[in-house]
Design a protein around this nucleic acid. Structure first.
Lengths: 65, 65
DNA sequence: TTAATATGTCAAGTTTTATTTACATTTTAT
DNA sequence: ATAAAATGTAAATAAAACTTGACATATTAA
């Protein structure tokens, strides 16, 4: 699963720590998601979408067959 | 997290077992998600969206503050 | 009415994701 | 060049998703 979190942080001038704080997870969790180590839970995906005022599909791109 | 899976199944004349089969999870997982026992993983949410040709937001409704 | 199909639920176990802690590296600012 | 801030990473643990198997109830069909 690809995602645009790093770009969205840049557009909004946010650090990983700030995004972590705003979405209620650890900085390391943000880093791991950005690096594709794992996917966020659906509730966390909704929090990203709400924060950036985008749809989940605009932030995360499925890569399944 | 609310969802419209039961309605979407009805509209598409599918059983829980069929939906489970099409999305690669167990029937009990479908039942548990429909009944709100837990949320699907983000990849599974994408599979539902792709199957029903809807956005994730059209299937799942966040209920956070 | 009986059998078959579909749904609801529960407990136990496995797998995956989230969190914590801790430290290393890189980038930015002074 | 140095300090501070930001990012990357890894191991251990906790939490959540998901499976399996079993059984009860409800709905549908013969």
């Amino acid at each position: 699963m690809k995602n645009r979190l790093k770009i969205l942080r840049a557009e909004n001038d946010m650090t990983q720590a700030q995004l972590a704080d705003e979405t209620g997870v650890s900085r390391q969790t943000i880093n791991a998601i950005e690096k594709g180590k794992f996917d966020p839970s659906l509730p966390l995906a909704f929090r990203f979408a709400r924060l950036f005022k985008l749809s989940i599909e605009e932030i995360f791109q499925d890569e399944e067959a």
